[in-house]
Amino acid sequence: MLYDQYVEELSKLPMTKELSFSESEYRLRVEKVRHIMDARGLDVLLITFTPNLSYLSGYQSFGSGWYKCMVLPREGEPVLHMHQLEIGPAVLTSWVGDVRGVPWSDERGAANGLADILKERKLENKRIGVEIKKPGLGVDLYEGLKRALPNASLLDASDVVGQPRMIKSEAEIDYLRSSANITMKALDAALPMIRAGVTDNQIAAVIYHSLINEGSEYFSTQPIVSAGQRNWFLHTTFKRTPIQVGDTVELEFGAAYQRYTSAICHTVAVGKPSPLVEARSKAINETLDLLFQAVKPGRNGHDIAREIGVGMNDVSPAPSATRMYGYSIGLGFPPTWGEELYFIREGIDLELKPGMTFHTVLAIDKPGTPGVGFSETWVVTESGYEILTAHDRELTVVDA
């Protein structure tokens, strides 16, 4: 297939571009990245990490695991170099005008095609930033670039796009509010049907239906419903498990709105909860309350974590010093809504600034005992914080 002809035909169609933001906002993001490139002495940046590429170009697709790269030179227009299946989504959802394809059958692979673009731009002997520490830059691509561009300097630039992504614009925060609204409706739909005798799959089905029916896109993280012995362990979810009296059911999910997610975690006790479950719920929610008393612009993650953490030590198998009390959330693609840009935990001295967004989930899961977890998604404001998923965090208890 002649991909340049295919892109030209697509571009001539009377379609409405599906941009999440204005082209001017995307170009402002590009300029912020270019300032960082200047400081690093980079002539061009190869962006292969899907959330970063989406942040700068607008690209969205459920097939985001396929090869993709945004070639961002220090000057001139960027290029999107995409697997053939992703050309359509790139043309539809991105503002970038130069979209080029890589066919399945191309024996040279993506590396040579990418090298050709760099040669075309006279960048084959320059300082090239690559996202070495991020998913998307495979070994084959990296080694292929080194072979095809023997005189280039390939430099780690994994954190370049992440720096402007840390501070969300008002438009981004509005998307997180929209996500939170859908997420809360799904929680309201799920809680009444949790009882002994139903399965975790049936609970998950209600969450899926509500999220999608209310307007969510495909999820960055699949909804989690953990019950029975499965919620003794972190990161387990539904698997045809019948709910029994004495179980706790942990729910964690979030709607995706223009790829932005506000997540929530909540726990339900089926029948009268044990003193251990009650103690864990109390400790988690008191710690969350302390967190929101402590956060404000100018404070750093280390100090906040040390200040609020000790309250969980008596009921948690993990000491407070090893806990994470918040991670950045926002723009995401499967398999995770977590941005991995900043954290609230000991050893992290990053300063909180207005526009930073966090998901704080605190869970206690110890083999042999019912798991308990609660969370909120929130944003740092000029005066403190705004909880986007504010809800009743008391342990929900349903009759056996």
Rank of each mutant, 00 (worst) to 15 (best):
I128M: 11
A321T: 03
T50P: 08
V161G: 14
A189K: 13
V198W: 12
P51C: 13
L388S: 09
V270T: 01
L145I: 08
S220M: 13
G368K: 09
A390T: 01
I87L: 11
E252L: 05
G301S: 03
S105C: 03
S328A: 09
E18M: 10
I182V: 14
I243K: 00
S105N: 12
V206N: 04
T50K: 14
D314M: 07
S57G: 13
R108W: 05
S210G: 11
G228W: 01
G76E: 03
G347D: 00
A204K: 15
V79Q: 10
D38A: 14
G136L: 07
Q202C: 09
F343T: 02
T267I: 00
S220P: 09
M193D: 09
L176A: 11
S54R: 14
E278C: 07
G373W: 04
T199R: 13
L123M: 14
P319Q: 04
G301C: 06
Q84I: 07
A39P: 14
A321R: 03
V380Q: 06
L118H: 12
M82C: 06
F238W: 08
K12I: 01
L10D: 07
M166Y: 09
R165K: 07
T48P: 03
T396W: 05
E286L: 10
P334W: 15
N213V: 07
T237D: 09
L191D: 13
R108C: 02
P89Q: 12
I224F: 11
C265H: 04
P275T: 01
P354D: 01
Y3R: 01
V398K: 09
G330Q: 05
L352T: 08
A227K: 01
L53S: 04
R240N: 12
S57V: 10
E339R: 14
P273I: 00
S178G: 12
P192W: 14
L176H: 06
I212K: 14
V277T: 00
E107Q: 03
H81E: 07
V7T: 15
K272G: 01
T241A: 04
P354L: 00
L80K: 07
H391C: 10
A111C: 04
